[in-house]
Design a protein around this nucleic acid. Structure first.
Lengths: 238, 238
DNA sequence: CGTTGGCTTGATACGCCTCAATGCTAGTGG
DNA sequence: CCACTAGCATTGAGGCGTATCAAGCCAACG
């Protein structure tokens, strides 16, 4: 039987971020969390595929992700869609529309999730020092986006998938989870959308990496067997 | 003889942003400009291809573009490069590294240029209300990046070039210049880099659009003859 | 007037997309 | 407990769009 929590098999129960709501992680708190907890924010739980907000809805709050995985995506007038990022615990949703009356992207839970609602009005009055943090978060989102733009423009399909896996691994590790055992919360189609590839191409890339013995793929469960081998492939011309 | 200022042929001399330094534009000021002029900032002039700053250099200032065109680009460890944007009068350079001790991208003048140096320390003390503006600028840079990520991921070569031309036209128009007569300040290679295409592909796309009578290309001078025709091509599947 | 950097065009190759079929897993209801 | 189903993932075959390589062109400049 496939364990649904491969990423945390070796970690204390407190670190479990998978499983149902009982398993809300207590460990691996970010420093942001302590700051925001002082506001006693409204908490909101979401089910898989539930929208936290949609582009166009009036915006009054930011949301701190306390548990779960989210995607943010934008939609053009003619229906083209792009996932702009996969967001996890410790990140904020809604900062891209801080200066707007309405949200400018959709935020969707990929799994269950819990967010803390942070009305921007209250942030202003109760937590003025937070403004500084917000600037830093905005700037780092820009750098992150640029870095993905670079990756999508200069790497081939296999290299993009590798970049995604290594990025996910390092983010999970920073939260206290295993950097070897990943559980992808998104479909191949969503991954392809984010990486500007077709879902079949993602599948093929994963299969090829597995054939080379670098990773092990069991549908959404990916084990990284040879991170250095993956990094070596990133160095190749294209 | 090719006029080097085709974009402004029908505009008053004050609006000329091309030509040599004598032609620094007086018109089309952004509201930011008035705010910043009060600081009596240090001015700096740059020649074509001159670096305003490079990634890794200690960062103390933002720069307001008073005249000229710039590109910002990032470089990966293994030498892959990506132009993250072309910046013009009224925009700020350096906001992406606001929270860092060093710049995280290169900023290069594509032509002559004049910038106003804004030491962040002074901004804090002398212009506290600017913080709000900065947040808005950061958020809108994120949305702009996302919008380009969408374009690069979902449009074909020709459509990307069209999107670039229409975007440039509208930005120039907002500054008070012609939206029909564009003068590209970047090489085909730079344009290709930005659009995630090879320079030959950019050339071919421009040639094809010209063959359809939608634009007229004379090297860097591009005249938009049928903007609606261009927009119609954007709607097609891909 | 030669040189240089940038632009254009052509021929060919190749990586990814597209379309189609099959497989796998989890969930559902008999 | 076992069909049955629905959704997602995998694999294959073939076509297409862009990259690559190569040659020639053009304008600017010393």
């Amino acid at each position: 039987m496939l364990d649904t929590t491969p990423a945390v098999a070796t970690l204390p129960p407190a670190a479990i971020h998978h499983g149902r709501l009982a398993g809300i992680p207590a460990g691996a708190a970010t420093d942001l969390e302590g700051l925001l907890a002082g506001l006693a924010p409204q908490r909101r739980r979401l089910e898989a595929r539930e929208y936290l907000f949609r582009a166009g809805q009036p915006r009054h709050s930011l949301f701190f992700i306390h548990a779960g995985f989210f995607k943010t995506c934008i939609l053009s007038e003619d229906g083209r869609e792009k996932i702009t990022g996969f967001r996890m615990r410790g990140e904020l949703l809604g900062i891209d529309s801080l200066d707007m009356p309405c949200y400018t992207c959709d935020a969707v839970a990929l799994d269950f999730g819990e967010v803390w609602e942070l009305p921007t009005a209250r942030l202003h009055t109760d937590l003025p020092e937070f403004h500084e943090r917000l600037t830093a978060l905005l700037a780092s989102e820009i750098r992150r986006d640029w870095s993905w733009m670079l990756a999508l423009a200069t790497l081939n399909a296999e290299q993009r998938v590798i970049t995604f896996l290594l990025d996910l691994a390092s983010r999970l590790e920073r939260l206290g989870f295993s950097a070897r055992d990943l559980l992808l919360r998104m479909t191949r189609a969503e991954l392809g959308n984010f990486l500007a590839l077709q879902l079949e191409t993602v599948t093929r890339a994963l299969s090829r990496l597995q054939a080379q013995g670098l990773i092990d793929v069991q549908r959404r469960a990916v084990r990284i067997d040879d991170a250095d081998g993956l990094r070596r492939l990133l160095m190749e011309p294209r």
